[in-house]
Amino acid sequence: MDENLNGYVAFLVLGVILVLVDGQLILRSGKAYLQQGYRDQEAAASMARLVAVLFHLVVLGLFMIISTMEVQVGGMVQTVITKLGIVLLLLGLMHGVTMAILNRIRARQREQLMADEMNERIEERHAQQNAGQGYPPVPAQGQVTVTPGTSSSPGPVVSPAIEDQPGVARR
């Protein structure tokens, strides 16, 4: 009975150490990876922590289930090694899933950053164009202003241009 208990304790200690080490690698590497897609570094760190906590909870839960499974492959050493092998395969799989999650988060953030930068450039371009013509600056995104015509432009001016408005069909 002592041999079974010692093997069980050894499996638990080694397994928990493996999960915690991998989780810390995910946390640190994930934070650096996500910071490339976030303007706010604290938001990137927070998202990395959330993903790491999810990883720890899922893997430790599965690890606890594996710890109660009966595996008879010979002696206690072989049983511990077999169970640790299962845990390592599980860790590898979950590490890959976590990397895919981090990649997806980063891709979404990069897309958002690019869209924000494009909107800023469009607003700057409109402001520069309108400033040279004596028009008021372009309002914040989503707002439209109409300025009455002047001697150089007989009709009303819509700022930003109607063609640039969301939902307007282009020809």
Score class of each variant (00 low, 15 high):
Val59Met: 08
Tyr33Thr: 04
Gln129Cys: 03
Pro139Leu: 01
Met69Ser: 04
Arg49Gln: 15
Val168Trp: 06
Val58Ala: 05
Gly15Trp: 08
Ser46Asn: 10
Val146Lys: 05
Val157Leu: 00
Val168Gln: 08
Leu60Ser: 01
Val71Gly: 02
Ala44Asp: 13
Val9Gly: 02
Pro154Gln: 08
Leu88Ile: 12
Leu25Thr: 15
Gln35Asn: 12
Thr145Asp: 03
Ser67Pro: 00
Val13Asp: 13
Ile81Arg: 01
Thr79Cys: 03
Ala100Thr: 02
Met64Ala: 14
Arg108Glu: 04
Pro160Glu: 08
Glu42Cys: 11
Glu120Lys: 05
Thr98Ser: 02
Gln133Gly: 01
Asn4Gly: 03
Thr68Met: 12
Ser159Tyr: 09
Arg49Pro: 12
Val9Met: 11
Leu20Lys: 11
Met99Ala: 05
Ser29Met: 14
Thr145Gln: 07
Val80Arg: 00
Arg121Ser: 15
Val146His: 04
Pro154Trp: 09
Ile101Phe: 06
Asn130Met: 08
Arg49Trp: 14
Ile122Arg: 03
Ser46Trp: 12
Phe63Cys: 00
Pro156His: 05
Pro148Glu: 11
Leu12Gln: 11
Ser159Phe: 11
Ala107Asn: 09
Ala131His: 09
Gly155Val: 14
Met99Trp: 06
Met76Ile: 15
Val53Phe: 14
Ala169Thr: 06
Thr98Leu: 02
Gln24Ser: 05
Phe11Lys: 00
Val157Met: 04
Gly85Val: 11
Gln133Met: 08
Val144Asp: 02
Lys31Gly: 11
Ile105Cys: 03
Val144Leu: 05
Leu91Asn: 01
Pro148Gln: 07
Leu54Val: 12
Ile101Val: 14
Gly132Cys: 07
Leu93Cys: 03
Gln112Thr: 04
Leu27Gly: 06
Glu163Tyr: 06
Gly96Cys: 04
Glu111Thr: 01
Met114Leu: 10
Glu120Val: 06
Thr79Arg: 10
Gln24Arg: 13
Leu34Gln: 15
Val146Arg: 04
